[in-house]
């Protein structure tokens, strides 16, 4: 079989779930035993895209937007309701086990490691499972352990590891069989800033060195901005955007948010004078949220200007939440359509 140009090809993908309606009360429960009424929910609705070898694709959306459903269809866990899906040129559901040998998956906040065993034993078992020759397994394991700095935790039972350590072990476990396609579902969820950065650095390097194709879902824009070259945005099951990160950035500006806690009530006294490229997003009591464009006004400069005018108790710099970006794309789309 000749290798197709695309590793993943999705066309008109649709996935529907039946959601049962729960009736209240005893009578309802008894009726529920005999007849099931429910409604159909479209988790993924007419989605099409293709991924070529060596791409690093971000798949973004709010919780429940359909990201995980798509991922589960790509790895063959779920059946598509309609549309065509090809991974390595094959139907991923029918050829689930064959494709599994070439795909590495990480699901954030779940574990594939044996809870009571040290990671080294989990790696050994996975090596057996994926039929990796012993020498190859050792070499690959050592390389990954070295890159992720896991030497010290190799013999500690998984249940005793921190979330960050565990996630790095999960990454190792998913890469032992040198997959051609790596799918990461929320790999940084729940991690602190340092651990997040470690994971991102590792993934960037993995992509740069090996040219592994990576698909990454996240609701953290930081992951996408720092890692991906291409972004798919999904909302309520529909694909809203497919393009490079720059085009997405044009849509949401890469505006950031500065949250300030003032000593005095924000509404009291003279109104705050703000520089160009900055506006008040929200103001209540002592707290004020400013949205600004770092290209027009860098954060340190903005903070300095506010400090001159008011006494500040606390500061927090935030990325714009993903829901916001999705909203903006909607508005932008509509404006283009008008």
């Amino acid at each position: 079989m000749t290798e197709p140009v695309e590793i993943v090809r999705v066309q008109g993908l649709r996935k529907e779930f039946r959601v049962l309606r729960h009736r209240g009360g005893v009578v309802g429960a008894v009726r529920g035993l005999f007849s099931r009424s429910g409604r159909t929910v479209r988790a993924v609705d007419d989605v099409s895209f293709a991924i070529r070898p060596g791409e690093l694709v971000g798949y973004v959306g709010a919780n429940g937007a359909g990201k995980s459903t798509t991922i589960k269809i790509l790895v063959g866990i779920l059946r598509a309701t309609s549309g065509s899906v090809r991974v390595f040129g094959r139907d991923p559901h029918r050829f689930r086990r064959q494709n599994a040998l070439r795909i590495g998956v990480v699901f954030g906040q779940r574990t594939q490691l044996w809870w009571d065993l040290p990671p080294s034993e989990s790696f050994q078992l996975l090596g057996t499972l994926y039929r990796i020759p012993a020498r190859e397994l050792r070499a690959r394991r050592d390389e990954l352990v070295d890159r992720l700095g896991l030497g010290a935790v190799l013999d500690v039972p998984v249940r005793k590891l921190s979330l960050g350590q565990r996630m790095r072990c999960e990454l190792t476990a998913s890469l032992l069989h040198a997959p051609d396609l790596v799918i990461l579902d929320e790999p940084t969820i729940g991690l602190d800033v340092v651990a997040k950065e470690e994971v991102r650095t590792f993934l960037r390097k993995l992509h740069a060195d090996r040219g592994t194709t990576l698909v990454l879902t996240s609701h953290d824009l930081g992951d996408i901005e720092r890692l991906c070259s291409r972004v798919l945005v999904i909302d309520e099951g529909r694909l809203l955007h497919d393009g490079d990160v720059e085009s997405l950035r044009r849509l949401f500006g890469h505006r950031r948010i500065l949250q300030i806690d003032l000593r005095d009530d924000a509404a009291q006294g003279r109104a705050l004078e703000l520089p160009r490229g900055c506006e008040v997003l929200e103001q209540s009591g002592h707290r004020i949220q400013l949205e600004f464009d770092p290209d027009q006004i860098p954060a340190p400069e903005l903070i300095r200007q506010v400090l001159v005018q008011r006494e500040i108790l606390d500061l927090k710099l935030q990325e714009r939440p993903i829901e916001d970006v999705v909203r903006r794309i909607y508005r932008g789309d509509r404006r283009e359509g008008d």
Binding site: R97, V105, R110, Y130
Partner: peptide
């Protein structure tokens, strides 16, 4: 319950 069964289904074994 935890969703870890998904990991079972991405293995090259029934």
């Amino acid at each position: 319950r935890s969703g870890s069964f998904d990991y079972v289904l991405v293995r090259p074994l029934p």
